[in-house]
Design a protein around this nucleic acid. Structure first.
Lengths: 334, 334
DNA sequence: GCCAACGTCTGCAACGATGTATGGCAGGAA
DNA sequence: TTCCTGCCATACATCGTTGCAGACGTTGGC
């Protein structure tokens, strides 16, 4: 049986509540008393029972993180940073993989997962704003990503449109005119895919290049789909001189397929991505991409969520934070 | 205020304990009573309070996973699978990143992290078996990886030596004679690095090739180190016709450096890795590597740990499980 | 010299569930 | 009738902590 506060209290010759007060940094305790208690704690090797504390206080000091799949490099890197940022502030992160399944997303909002955490970092991929609003409890929620732009919710995101436009402009400046886009429907205009596609179209417009829907290949954002999409375009006889993968793994999958088929990158086809995962720098050729300020996203979303949890004023209405970005020009599209 | 068991009991006209019994599948409950309770639960939207349940029962239904860094692709993919395997059995996984810092590893074994979980999956990188034994509580612990081979602990691992030997033999069969190894000290013989290096040496011996310590470059297992190690060898005038990165990111970093410097892979230098991360298949050229049976590792380690937690006989002494492996021959070393 | 204010500490009652022990009731055996 | 057994439900204590209200002794103002 573990050492309890009662044992400590007995050893220090004070009441149970005084031990609790010492542990919770209650203001009015005589230094001598405090020391006696601390000594007793050290001597007995007492450790607070977090479960009991949670039951009584209603706080778990855990944050929930809902994302589709931790094995996707972007999410893995993001999760790693979020966990470190949370850890610095005395919180842990509990991860839930939704696999982009609506039911799982809904359950994360109200089920046991919610109960275990003081607040949620949520990357909705399937459900919409109203569904979220319906099951929104009292606990804070911060949305990540950009599937949902709704004034009711805090949101931390990146400058998708602007970054995609800059990247596209860079490709155009390199003389590319037929830039294929992998990972969006031609008419898409919301969500990460839509916003990035909008940026692409905006850059085309500004350069006086006509948008060509035949160059836009929709698919889920996975490496193998990037390869398959390029294969589809080529087999369909679509010609292009650049590929913009809406995220890095799509771009890398696409690049792989191009190289296999004997295209030279970037001479024949330039390739660019989005996310700047660690792998992008070391791909061959290294991948031109957008670094979306992941560290800033991690730091600010954790900060915002914890501010909400601890009741600090962080603005009364929903915050909408956009991290800065950087174009990373590398070999695949110099 | 949330709905409690008491509310349900009142609504159903039974005692608190009867509700608890229904929830815990107690055998002797009249179907009619059971139904009344279940209806009341549904009507009130009752959800069990997990914190209270944990306090009373001493179980959290969470498993701890300690690894160095979730952003490393191998760990990210492993964590993702472990979480899914745990989820299927009604458990969650709480991840702790040690950054290969000894103090963090020690704290994971006995601190609050341990308290929050019913059992631990632990990848020790720094601390040794005795340090673990010293702070081993009553809760089950399963070691992952192979830094520690000790009859006191359950261990789930892979066939490092055998797989490395097969891979090396494959390189030798392709006519390579000067195979550089990235990620180990020449004298290392324990841990993942040591075991894989042993396999390498064994294959050399069997082929009658002399081991050359100058070909062995030690470094931490990160992508940039793989590149730096190859650069170091080349700048130091060491000649080689193949590189064996002791994991995939090292191999990919190395390959990147080789390609930058104008070597052709595999014509001038063959490259091989270990882990078969998703990226390996889509690298250019695609990476020859060892698939270490990650799915089996995830499934069996979760199974073993939960068996221990739930007190099922899984053999009285420590289990020692080795997953099977597969050689994946791809373009980088055909 | 009295009362209010202050600083310091304490006791009790929760938080919401589960384990143990036990209480009824029905039906069959003695 | 009486006792026992099997089924079903209950009461009470308990897990280890924190919130609330208040007790106690000291100090300072008037």
């Amino acid at each position: 049986m573990a050492v309890t506060m009662n044992d400590v209290a007995r050893a220090a010759g004070v009441s149970l509540k005084t031990v609790s007060n010492v542990l919770n940094d209650y203001e009015f305790i005589r230094p001598a008393t405090k020391k006696r208690v601390q000594d007793a704690i050290a001597e007995l090797g007492y450790e607070a029972n977090l479960t009991a504390r949670s039951l009584r206080s209603g706080k778990t000091r855990m944050l929930g993180l809902v994302l589709s799949d931790l094995s996707a490099p972007y999410y893995a890197e993001l999760a790693s940073r979020l966990m470190k940022a949370a850890s610095r502030r005395g919180y842990r992160v509990l991860v839930e993989q939704s696999d982009a399944v609506g039911e799982v997303e809904l359950n994360a909002l109200q089920g046991p997962f919610r109960q275990l955490t003081d607040g949620l970092l949520f990357t909705p991929l399937v459900i919409d704003a109203d569904a979220i609003a319906d099951r929104l409890g009292k606990k804070p929620l911060v949305l990540l990503g950009e599937h949902i732009l709704d004034p009711r919710f805090d949101l931390v995101t990146m400058k998708n449109g602007e970054a995609a436009a800059d990247l596209t402009a860079h490709l155009l400046a390199g003389g590319r005119r037929r830039i294929a886009v992998i990972g969006a429907h031609p008419e898409e205009s919301a969500g990460s895919a839509g916003l990035r596609l909008n940026g692409y179209r905006k850059a085309l417009d500004e350069a006086g290049v006509t948008f060509n829907p035949e160059l836009i290949a929709p698919c889920e954002w996975r490496r193998d789909n990037g390869a398959a999409a390029v294969a589809g375009l080529l087999d369909g006889g679509v010609e292009f001189d650049a590929v913009f993968g809406l995220n890095d793994v799509l771009a890398l999958g696409a690049m792989h397929e191009l190289l296999i088929r004997g295209f030279r990158v970037p001479q024949d086809v330039a390739v660019a991505g989005f996310d700047d995962i660690d792998e992008a720098r070391f791909a061959s050729p290294s991948l031109t991409t957008v670094s979306p300020g992941m560290e800033e996203i991690a730091e600010r979303s954790i900060g915002l969520l914890i501010d909400r949890i601890e009741g600090r004023e962080a603005g009364d209405q929903a915050a909408h934070i956009e991290a800065g970005f950087q174009l990373k020009v590398r070999e695949s599209a110099p």
